[in-house]
Design a protein around this nucleic acid. Sequence first.
DNA 1: AAGTGGTCTAGACCACGGT
DNA 2: CCGTGGTCTAGACCACTTG
Lengths: 248, 248
Amino acid sequence: MGTTQLETVPEPKYWHLKTVLSEALDSEFAVGEILPNERDLAARFGVARATLRQALEQLELEGRLQRRRGVGTTVAPPRVGVAVAPARHSWPGAAGDDWQPVGCDVSDTVPSVVARLLETAAGDRVHIVRRSRVTQDRPLAAESLYVPAAVIPGSAQFDLLTGPARAHAVLQELQSLELEGQDRTVELGSARAEDAKQLDRLPGAPVLVVTTRYVSGGRTTAVAVSTYRADTCRLTFGESDAVAFLAG
Amino acid sequence: MGTTQLETVPEPKYWHLKTVLSEALDSEFAVGEILPNERDLAARFGVARATLRQALEQLELEGRLQRRRGVGTTVAPPRVGVAVAPARHSWPGAAGDDWQPVGCDVSDTVPSVVARLLETAAGDRVHIVRRSRVTQDRPLAAESLYVPAAVIPGSAQFDLLTGPARAHAVLQELQSLELEGQDRTVELGSARAEDAKQLDRLPGAPVLVVTTRYVSGGRTTAVAVSTYRADTCRLTFGESDAVAFLAG
DNA sequence: AAGTGGTCTAGACCACGGT
DNA sequence: CCGTGGTCTAGACCACTTG
């Protein structure tokens, strides 16, 4: 069934292929099931492997498929609804928060977009708390939280701590400040090598980047950059969390 | 410069290329400037065109480049901050809303995910209002708003109207209902053919799909599915709109 | 008509996971 | 070790925009 039907506006093969595969996934496959390998699939549809891969890539982008090198291609479960904006504003690390502290560093250079939000100059010491969000053994997101050392009184003592303990200490100090507000942006990005490893994906994998600005004392006190796996996550916002549990 | 340096973990060529190009964009190119064409660039870097394209695709995904068939590749301006969640909840089509009504249809079949949210059965009449969001002559988003005919009293008369006028009429009727709440989800998708045309992109282009649920009278009264160009948009949420005007 | 990006091919080799 | 998906090549043709 290669190029049987030609229409007035010839549809690209990979696009047609994607449609066919998508319908097949709906009707003939169960979640978790393994598809034939790419070479067999390409032969079956009478296209080059690169063309088939173009279709598979889009389906993976839409969260329909999951591909793993050395293993194969499987039918993905519906996207997980992930609550991003809690009902009440709260600092990261507050009780009931789904994140696990991983580690903490101090640096005097931060991404320029973060420095602009924090209004820090080059050379200012900034705590970088790294956290990870996991559900059902699947990594969902990786986060870097930037807190200028200047906003935390006793931060010099933290140098004695390492790893999660140090992360905890920084988060602890935040809770005592009064949180006046917060806002967020969401945009598409591609995973940096470091995040990719934490998310169990290859570098460059599509991610949803959530940048949260925490306001206290009239200024931006902390900035969190969270990268969510775009293939498996659906971010949810709003007062009712009910929607977070709806299947896709 | 082909495979000169081999590291312990050999970096893919396209990844390295992307890094090199990204730095060149920062330092040597101005927004709007036209890059050399793909064949020349590939030759200059000593790689196949497909490999170069893989790097360009990622840069376009990240909003750094803009490619147009028949024209060329240009350096993209920073992403536009787009306010998605207004300070106070309001119905679509309320005063001060950035959307332009395009048209309106009635259908008895809606996407299954929408039907589930609206709790409509197959065969129920649903108004589908199509709107478009534009800034500075650039299309940002396309939207389909689904409103069951049952929730709008005098909707039978709307059959006399067409196009934007009919869309207006449906939106008008919504304003009289009391809006009790709303929530949203954001996920990655690829543009359907129809949306792609409206967004001035090719089918399959990456989009951020925002699904908004409007609650009134204790049930979901309307559902809006808005698809934003992922390459050019940064969605903003939160009480202060200040962040919407920060450059990326 | 010329030049651009978009699609497609038929190969090849590599990195990784499981056996 | 084998089989998987990931990377890469060197071509070809097509769809689109512009002069």
